[in-house]
Design a protein around this nucleic acid. Structure first.
Lengths: 212, 212
DNA sequence: AAGCCTTCCGAACGGATGTTCGCGCAAACT
DNA sequence: AGTTTGCGCGAACATCCGTTCGGAAGGCTT
């Protein structure tokens, strides 16, 4: 990526702020005014240079057909993840059905797509209390889950423990008739229980710990 | 938000895909062709309706002056956070200076602005090993920090412990001549040391635990 | 000096584009 | 039946806007 001249940098910066502000690219004459350039042809000339140097892409003959390339312009896809509620010991998670999905979201969080690995129907829960501290999940954390009713060995899943009346997040291992729930924290002991006592609520994808 | 007619929904959907694809809004005649509409005035009519119903915003007299409103269109600001490296016991963090900033980033992560609370100069580190497990931070986690050389009581900071040759993330409390470093996990014991043994590297903002 | 490249300027051309106006049609209402 | 309202159609208009062209000034090499 070659270096660019003062005017070209100025134009590129103007492009960014204009798009950020208006949500559509400027016309050549917008750039002319915004950068104090005397002629449209100068703008055109420098835009060609920027295109050569691969900072932008232009759709010729199309008004405002300018697209900023590179990390600053190439926006990652954003997905809006509904925060369906809070997860706390003693309350089962309301597993979302596709119909209900989006209706009973009390809130939502915008995240970049790679944070949920491009998975579908992801929902989020706010963690209340420190009951999952042995899974390295603190009060106030946000966990992202994808709907699931079953799980493979080693999957990190949110499970409803019927006898305890409690939801927790553990790695699950089926061992014959019983089920082992292994905390993320290796210093903690696993929970052993029977298969009919656990009910998988969702598969863990990722989690986020916000600022205080 | 009122309901919209079939044609209006079609136009709105076309707007989304067009912008997603090209990164600039379509002209009225683009919409006309894309939706199989016979006249530009029909497009104009329905765009006015969409504007009345608050689905879009138009800049009149401006070509392609269309902006999609609502959660799907209103994109949260994205910031690119440089991942400066890995943090592991036994290695101090390379605190970024504004000059170096952006140069020695081995990688970067795109996050929505609210994840770092709009703070400036934020950088990220990949956590290697389980040495910070008592702070509820696991191997593979990504922590977001802002540069800082000092901290107030109760701040969660990354500190370099000279005698241990180790970096860790704790809440810091100054208690006279000594310093108390309190783990996030309340079941763990705090570390007591002297003020000249600790060196603040950065202030904790948030952390993220990716999928496996 | 001569030639070439880069950058900039002003003007003009022609297509692209938003807007407007008159008209038609059907359903709903008076 | 007459009127209103919502919606669509086609054409025309004025402007917006990307492009092009001739020219000029400065730097660089030969």
């Amino acid at each position: 990526m070659q270096e660019l001249s003062g005017k070209q940098g100025q134009i590129l910066e103007f492009l960014r702020t204009f798009i950020e502000d208006k949500d559509y690219p400027p016309s050549i004459r917008d750039i002319q005014d915004g950068c104090g350039i005397s002629s449209t042809s100068v703008v055109d000339y420098n835009l060609r240079k920027l295109e050569e140097k691969n900072y932008i892409r232009r759709d010729r003959e199309v008004s405002r057909g300018i697209e900023i390339l590179g990390s600053r312009g190439r926006r990652p896809r954003i997905v809006e993840v509904p925060v369906l509620g809070s997860i706390a010991a003693g309350q089962p998670i309301p597993v979302p059905t596709s119909e209900r999905w989006g209706n009973d979201a009390e809130d939502s969080v915008a995240v970049t797509e790679d944070m949920i690995r491009g998975r579908q129907n992801v929902f989020a829960l706010r963690v209340k209390g420190t009951s999952m501290i042995d899974d390295l999940i603190d009060d106030g954390d946000i966990v992202f889950l994808e709907p699931a009713r079953s799980a493979n060995d080693g999957d990190k899943v949110a499970v409803w423990l019927k006898d305890r009346g409690e939801v927790t997040l553990k790695r699950i291992y089926h061992e014959g008739a019983r089920v082992r729930l292994q905390p993320a924290n290796s210093t903690m002991q696993p929970i052993y229980t029977t298969a009919d006592n656990v009910e998988v609520q969702g598969r863990f994808i990722s989690s986020f710990r916000p600022a205080d």
